[in-house]
Simulated scan of single mutants.
Amino acid sequence: MKIGNRKIGRSEKPFIIAEMSGNHNQSLERALKIVDLAAEAGADAVKLQTYTPDTMTLDIHTGEFFIESDTNLWKGQSLYNLYQEAYTPWEWHEAIFNRCKEHGMLGFSSPFDETAVDFLEMLDVPAYKIASFENVDIPLIKKVAATGKPIIISTGMASIAELDEAVQAVRSQGNDQLVLLKCTSTYPATPENSNIATIPHMQELFSTEVGLSDHTMGVGTAIAAVTLGATVIEKHFTTSRAEGGVDAAFSMEPHELKLLVEETERAWSSLGTVTYGPTDAEKPSLEHRRSLYIGADLKAGSVLTKENVRVIRPGHGLAPKHLELVLGKTIKVDAAKGTPLSWELLL
């Protein structure tokens, strides 16, 4: 499949998405800088989130609309105020997407309701992303699928049955351009809670491209995911964690994103195919294997013993497996120390 002009698949290097989320801190200038830095680091795409506080929740600041959990990164805020702080103004989208185009990058977004899809269609985005918390919103998924554009769905918290419903919702609209992202919906996530061994199983189960939406710190989990077949990697991205922001605590900085791009491509490049024996690049090294050599100056008629036959480098003599066979044999010509042993030397 393709997103824009970029092919997605095992034969292509990993597709790297820099997720801006709310890291712009309500500054368009900072949002555009995030795009610039993502391009400089080598990302393939920048992703936004398209919603307003009113399309996400109710303007209520008590009870279940207020975050009180000690384990929640956003404890002490109401949902409405959190989304008010984090949302990307819709009037910024075109400028951000245009900046992506200037860098030759793709720009797209996660819509959180049907009005966001209609808005993004007016901007002719090349793809859509469904966030983990929306992967059970079948009406939204069907509306996105009906655009005919590629869809990336994060699978955080979803059971196999729920994922099957989402996949079938996409395909029911005649759309087979689908990527599922293994995701752990904790912020940040730990490597131990990432379970990326699910990636090849998900590929087999749903016959889709599979990637990773990664909330862990560092690049290790993403690199491991690529070795398991991940073709898309999404990471939250910011200019600097020290500058704060709703998602800054688990977002990558520019030097880390650059490292992610480089190391996931190295991991992908190293996969190759199942192969045994020396590669073309290894063949010159064959001469540095061990082999059998004459270890002392010998006259014709001398008997080979463990004292005058050595298993050493380089590899121009008989293979070491022949040692027991040649011991006790007689040589038919003089042989200087350092002569590779060959069958032609033996009587």
Results as ranks from 00 to 15, higher is better:
residue 153 I to F: 05
residue 286 L to Y: 06
residue 275 T to D: 07
residue 42 G to N: 00
residue 16 I to A: 15
residue 235 K to G: 01
residue 288 H to K: 13
residue 1 M to T: 04
residue 269 S to Q: 15
residue 21 S to H: 07
residue 128 Y to D: 00
residue 83 Y to W: 08
residue 334 D to S: 01
residue 293 Y to P: 03
residue 346 L to P: 01
residue 305 T to R: 00
residue 325 L to W: 08
residue 112 F to M: 07
residue 275 T to M: 12
residue 118 D to M: 12
residue 256 E to F: 04
residue 26 Q to A: 11
residue 235 K to Y: 06
residue 172 S to I: 05
residue 195 N to Q: 10
residue 111 P to W: 07
residue 249 A to Q: 15
residue 209 E to S: 13
residue 19 E to P: 12
residue 102 E to M: 03
residue 294 I to Y: 02
residue 346 L to R: 08
residue 155 T to P: 05
residue 98 N to P: 10
residue 165 E to F: 12
residue 246 V to A: 11
residue 209 E to N: 09
residue 342 S to K: 08
residue 85 E to G: 05
residue 338 G to I: 08
residue 36 D to W: 13
residue 21 S to A: 15
residue 65 F to Q: 12
residue 326 V to P: 05
residue 262 E to F: 09
residue 5 N to I: 10
residue 40 E to K: 14
residue 71 T to Y: 14
residue 199 I to P: 12
residue 165 E to P: 00
residue 337 K to T: 05
residue 70 D to G: 03
residue 68 E to S: 15
residue 30 R to W: 04
residue 105 M to D: 02
residue 129 K to I: 03
residue 330 T to E: 15
residue 7 K to T: 12
residue 332 K to R: 14
residue 271 L to E: 09
residue 73 L to S: 15
residue 189 A to P: 07
residue 127 A to V: 00
residue 261 V to D: 08
residue 163 L to Q: 09
residue 251 S to D: 06
residue 253 E to N: 06
residue 23 N to G: 06
residue 190 T to N: 12
residue 104 G to N: 12
residue 78 S to E: 02
residue 232 V to Y: 05
residue 304 L to C: 01
residue 13 K to S: 15
residue 261 V to H: 01
residue 227 T to M: 14
residue 222 A to P: 02
residue 244 G to F: 03
residue 67 I to F: 02
residue 243 E to T: 13
residue 143 K to M: 03
residue 260 L to N: 00
residue 131 A to Q: 00
residue 104 G to E: 03
residue 269 S to H: 13
residue 332 K to Q: 07
